[in-house]
């Protein structure tokens, strides 16, 4: 395996958790809800996925459990923000803090234990192709799922009635309500979908990326996913590009560290965070672009007058 191929492979693994978490949040925000708790849902997904994989020996059971964990937290968030119209920003922060706390508590028993690794699926013959073989046809299932999700979300959002309803609710919840759309139901479902995706993204970390449990192993990826959604101006295909770009930035630091270059490792570790700030600045400089694309009801509470 050549150097180039190795780097590409690691970029894919680094990008996948970002992509999974961000594609879920994209749908949530399209429906008008801002869930800042991605980091919390992710880390609970990571620890629960690890735990379930340990208990059953199956990484797929782990992935499923990770999704359920994310959805449980998302449901809590939904109840507060959709039913009790609590401030979405503050509730999202609460979700992150609670998720980090719960994961830390649950994970204590798993520190240092070897995990169950999600195996790559080698598609016979194809994965043996030179250069592209391993990259295109030798990934684990979740990589394919993340890509399929991007395609599915693109299709559903822009070519189906369900997607139209989601966008309508995010654009003007009052009008959607007047037309008889159940705004709360749509938002609950979107928030749950976002929770499942974030949980799965966490599960990917503890099952595939580094198959073990490390306290705080999400390391801000949930927040970066949130920034990616803004960066992508709420469009799935741009999100795909953004996630792979950030995957590359993350991997660059590893390779740079491996090769030395004399740059302190902390500086390289700070790269993804600095890059996040940089892309946010670049995208927000174009205010017209952001304002046209931002779901108009994002973060705004809705109380039906019934």
């Amino acid at each position: 395996m050549g150097m180039f191929e190795a780097i590409l492979l690691t970029v894919i693994t680094a990008a996948t958790p970002l992509l999974l978490a961000a594609i879920g949040e994209l749908v949530v925000e399209r429906s008008g809800v801002l869930n800042l708790g991605v980091e919390g849902m992710m880390i609970l997904g990571a620890v629960m996925g690890f735990a379930a994989a340990q208990a059953t020996g199956s990484p797929y059971a782990g992935a499923l459990c990770a999704m359920l964990a994310g959805m449980t937290l998302a449901l809590l968030f939904g109840f507060l923000t959709i039913h009790l119209v609590a401030n979405q920003v503050a509730t999202g922060l609460a979700l992150t803090l609670l998720g980090l706390g719960l994961a830390g508590m649950i994970g204590e028993a798993f520190v240092g234990r070897p995990g169950v690794r999600l195996q790559a699926i080698d598609i016979p013959v194809l994965s043996d192709l030179p250069v592209v073989g391993r990259i295109l046809f030798g990934q684990d299932l979740l990589v394919y799922i993340s890509l399929a999700l991007v395609a599915a979300v693109t299709y559903v959002l822009f070519h189906t009635r369900v997607g139209l309803v989601i966008r309508a609710v995010g654009d003007n919840h009052g009008s959607a309500h007047a037309l008889g759309v159940s705004v709360r139901k749509v938002r609950y479902l979107a928030v749950l979908f976002g929770g499942a995706c974030a949980g799965l993204a966490g599960g990917y970390l503890s099952l595939a990326y580094t198959p073990q449990w490390i306290e705080g192993m999400t390391a801000g990826r949930g927040w970066i996913a949130l920034a990616l959604v803004v960066f992508a101006t709420w469009r799935p295909l741009r999100l795909l590009a953004g996630a792979y770009l950030f995957g590359a930035v993350g991997i660059m630091q590893f390779h740079a560290q491996a090769h030395g270059f004399g740059i302190p490792s902390q500086f390289l570790s700070a790269l993804p965070y600095a890059a996040t700030i940089a892309v946010l600045v670049i995208i927000s400089r174009n205010r017209i672009l952001t304002r046209i694309n931002t779901p108009a009801c994002l973060g705004r509470p809705f109380v039906p007058d019934r």
């Binding site: 609670l98 980090l100 830390g104 508590m105």
Partner: peptide
Amino acid sequence: SDKTTRVFQGMLLFYVL
């Protein structure tokens, strides 16, 4: 585990909101 502290804190904020 002293990690329960964080759980308590998170729950508290949830209930406050």
